[in-house]
């Protein structure tokens, strides 16, 4: 399993909360894969610059940090029933 380093900038939300999550399992070094702990985005190093390069990403798919907490909740958290 890849070593975890959490100080990498996420290419989508720009938080410094991304980490190296995986590497090519055949040992070829073909790619590494990063995940963001904040917005849960993931990207592979072999993807195009429109994915991996912050300056070339389509702004329509960028994520504002504030949006992560306020976005629509598909299944609202229910109240706990009484233990009784």
């Amino acid at each position: 399993m890849a070593e975890k380093n959490t100080n990498i900038q996420c290419v989508r939300c720009l938080s410094e909360t991304a980490y190296l999550a995986a590497s090519a399992p055949d040992g070829s070094g073909a790619w590494d894969l990063y995940c963001c702990s904040y917005c849960n985005y993931g990207w592979r190093t072999t993807e195009g610059s429109e994915i991996t390069d912050v300056t070339k990403r389509d702004p329509r798919f960028s994520v504002d940090k504030n949006e992560v907490e306020s976005v629509f909740c598909l299944n609202p958290i229910p109240k706990l029933l009484n233990k009784e």
Binding site: A2, G42, E47, I51
Partner: peptide, 21 residues
């Protein structure tokens, strides 16, 4: 133990602007 789905299976981005795999 040490489960890493990204390394166990060939996960891929289905469409270019999906939020992940």
């Amino acid at each position: 133990e040490n489960i890493n789905l990204f390394e166990l299976f060939p996960l891929h981005r289905v469409n270019e602007h999906d939020g992940g795999f």
